[in-house]
Amino acid sequence: GLPPGWRKIHDAAGTYYWHVPSGSTQWQRPTW
């Protein structure tokens, strides 16, 4: 699974990851 606080988001551009507490997003899968 993903580290705490991360969500996987799907949209028209593809899949990305959202860090809910900080509001940051990234294309790379977050690592622990």
Score class of each variant (00 low, 15 high):
residue 18 W to L: 15
residue 25 T to I: 15
residue 21 P to Q: 07
residue 16 Y to H: 06
residue 18 W to E: 14
residue 7 R to T: 13
residue 29 R to H: 11
residue 31 T to E: 13
residue 26 Q to P: 01
residue 18 W to Y: 15
residue 10 H to F: 09
residue 16 Y to N: 02
residue 11 D to P: 00
residue 11 D to M: 09
residue 2 L to M: 05
residue 28 Q to D: 14
residue 13 A to G: 12
residue 6 W to Y: 00
residue 4 P to R: 05
residue 1 G to T: 12
residue 29 R to I: 12
residue 23 G to Y: 04
residue 9 I to P: 03
residue 17 Y to K: 04
residue 28 Q to N: 11
residue 8 K to F: 11
residue 24 S to T: 15
residue 21 P to D: 09
residue 10 H to P: 05
residue 30 P to T: 00
residue 3 P to D: 02
residue 5 G to V: 01
residue 11 D to L: 08
residue 20 V to G: 07
residue 25 T to N: 06
residue 26 Q to E: 06
residue 31 T to G: 10
residue 9 I to T: 04
residue 25 T to K: 15
residue 28 Q to L: 10
residue 32 W to Q: 10
residue 1 G to Q: 12
residue 5 G to N: 05
residue 17 Y to T: 00
residue 26 Q to F: 04
residue 27 W to H: 11
residue 28 Q to I: 09
residue 29 R to Q: 11
residue 2 L to Q: 07
residue 13 A to F: 15
residue 13 A to M: 14
residue 24 S to M: 15
residue 23 G to W: 02
residue 17 Y to E: 00
residue 8 K to Q: 14
residue 24 S to R: 15
residue 9 I to F: 04
residue 31 T to W: 07
residue 1 G to K: 13
residue 17 Y to G: 00
residue 4 P to S: 06
residue 18 W to V: 15
residue 31 T to P: 07
residue 8 K to I: 15
residue 32 W to I: 10
residue 8 K to M: 15
residue 30 P to A: 00
residue 14 G to V: 07
residue 25 T to P: 04
residue 7 R to K: 13
residue 13 A to V: 12
residue 26 Q to R: 05
residue 19 H to V: 01
residue 20 V to S: 08
residue 11 D to G: 15
residue 25 T to D: 05
residue 1 G to V: 11
residue 1 G to D: 14
residue 27 W to E: 11
residue 21 P to N: 05
residue 20 V to W: 12
residue 12 A to L: 09
residue 22 S to A: 04
residue 23 G to F: 02
residue 18 W to K: 12
residue 6 W to P: 01
residue 29 R to G: 03
residue 2 L to A: 03
residue 11 D to Y: 08
residue 32 W to D: 09
residue 32 W to K: 08
residue 22 S to D: 03
residue 32 W to Y: 10
residue 18 W to T: 09
residue 12 A to E: 14
residue 7 R to G: 03
residue 13 A to N: 14
residue 23 G to P: 00
residue 5 G to K: 01
residue 19 H to W: 03
residue 24 S to Y: 14
residue 13 A to H: 14
residue 20 V to T: 08
residue 14 G to Y: 06
residue 17 Y to W: 06
residue 16 Y to G: 06
residue 15 T to Y: 08
residue 28 Q to T: 12
residue 1 G to W: 12
residue 9 I to W: 06
residue 22 S to Q: 01
residue 29 R to V: 13
residue 19 H to A: 03
residue 7 R to Q: 12
residue 27 W to S: 13
residue 8 K to H: 10
residue 27 W to Q: 13
residue 11 D to E: 08
residue 24 S to W: 15
residue 32 W to L: 09
residue 8 K to G: 05
residue 14 G to A: 04
residue 15 T to I: 13
residue 23 G to A: 04
residue 14 G to H: 07
residue 10 H to R: 11
residue 9 I to M: 12
residue 25 T to F: 14
residue 17 Y to H: 03
residue 8 K to E: 15
residue 2 L to D: 05
residue 28 Q to R: 09
residue 13 A to T: 15
residue 15 T to P: 06
residue 11 D to N: 13
residue 14 G to I: 04
residue 27 W to T: 14
residue 3 P to R: 02
residue 8 K to S: 08
residue 1 G to H: 12
residue 12 A to V: 11
residue 5 G to P: 07
residue 11 D to F: 07
residue 16 Y to W: 11
residue 10 H to L: 11
residue 24 S to Q: 15
residue 29 R to A: 11
residue 9 I to Y: 04
residue 20 V to H: 06
residue 19 H to Q: 00
residue 29 R to L: 11
residue 27 W to N: 10
residue 3 P to E: 02
residue 32 W to F: 12
residue 5 G to Y: 03
residue 23 G to Q: 05
residue 5 G to T: 01
residue 20 V to D: 08
residue 23 G to R: 02
residue 22 S to V: 03
residue 2 L to R: 05
residue 4 P to G: 06
residue 8 K to L: 14
residue 12 A to D: 12
residue 12 A to K: 13
residue 13 A to S: 14
residue 11 D to H: 10
residue 22 S to F: 03
residue 2 L to W: 01
residue 22 S to M: 02
residue 8 K to N: 04
residue 23 G to K: 04
residue 19 H to G: 00
residue 8 K to P: 08
residue 23 G to T: 01
residue 28 Q to V: 08
residue 7 R to V: 15
residue 18 W to R: 08
residue 3 P to I: 02
residue 23 G to E: 04
residue 6 W to N: 01
residue 23 G to D: 07
residue 13 A to D: 11
residue 19 H to M: 06
residue 27 W to A: 13
residue 12 A to W: 09
residue 24 S to F: 14
residue 31 T to I: 11
residue 26 Q to N: 06
residue 5 G to H: 03
residue 4 P to K: 05
residue 30 P to M: 00
residue 17 Y to A: 01
residue 7 R to Y: 13
residue 11 D to Q: 06
residue 26 Q to K: 03
residue 15 T to D: 13
residue 10 H to E: 15
residue 21 P to A: 10
residue 22 S to K: 02
residue 12 A to Y: 06
residue 1 G to L: 13
residue 21 P to E: 13
residue 10 H to Q: 13
residue 21 P to W: 07
residue 11 D to K: 08
residue 28 Q to Y: 10
residue 17 Y to Q: 02
residue 8 K to R: 12
residue 16 Y to R: 08
residue 9 I to N: 02
residue 23 G to H: 02
residue 16 Y to I: 08
residue 12 A to M: 10
residue 7 R to F: 13
residue 9 I to A: 05
residue 8 K to Y: 11
residue 2 L to G: 02
residue 5 G to D: 07
residue 21 P to V: 09
residue 24 S to L: 15
residue 24 S to H: 15
residue 21 P to G: 06
residue 17 Y to P: 03
residue 28 Q to E: 15
residue 18 W to P: 02
residue 32 W to T: 10
residue 10 H to S: 14
residue 31 T to A: 11
residue 3 P to M: 02
residue 28 Q to M: 10
residue 16 Y to M: 06
residue 11 D to R: 09
residue 5 G to W: 05
residue 22 S to R: 02
residue 18 W to A: 08
residue 27 W to R: 13
residue 12 A to T: 10
residue 25 T to M: 14
residue 18 W to N: 05
residue 23 G to S: 04
residue 19 H to K: 05
residue 28 Q to P: 05
residue 13 A to I: 12
residue 8 K to W: 09
residue 2 L to T: 01
residue 4 P to H: 08
residue 21 P to K: 08
residue 28 Q to K: 08
residue 3 P to F: 06
residue 22 S to H: 04
residue 20 V to K: 07
residue 31 T to L: 12
residue 3 P to L: 04
residue 26 Q to V: 05
residue 32 W to V: 09
residue 28 Q to F: 10
residue 30 P to F: 00
residue 16 Y to F: 08
residue 12 A to F: 08
residue 19 H to P: 03
residue 4 P to A: 07
residue 6 W to Q: 03
residue 2 L to K: 03
residue 25 T to L: 14
residue 17 Y to D: 01
residue 30 P to K: 00
residue 3 P to K: 01
residue 31 T to S: 11
residue 19 H to T: 01
residue 32 W to G: 09
residue 27 W to Y: 13
residue 29 R to S: 08
residue 31 T to M: 12
residue 15 T to F: 09
residue 4 P to Y: 06
residue 19 H to L: 06
residue 7 R to A: 09
residue 2 L to F: 04
residue 2 L to V: 04
residue 3 P to H: 01
residue 12 A to P: 12
residue 15 T to A: 10
residue 13 A to K: 14
residue 15 T to Q: 07
residue 2 L to E: 13
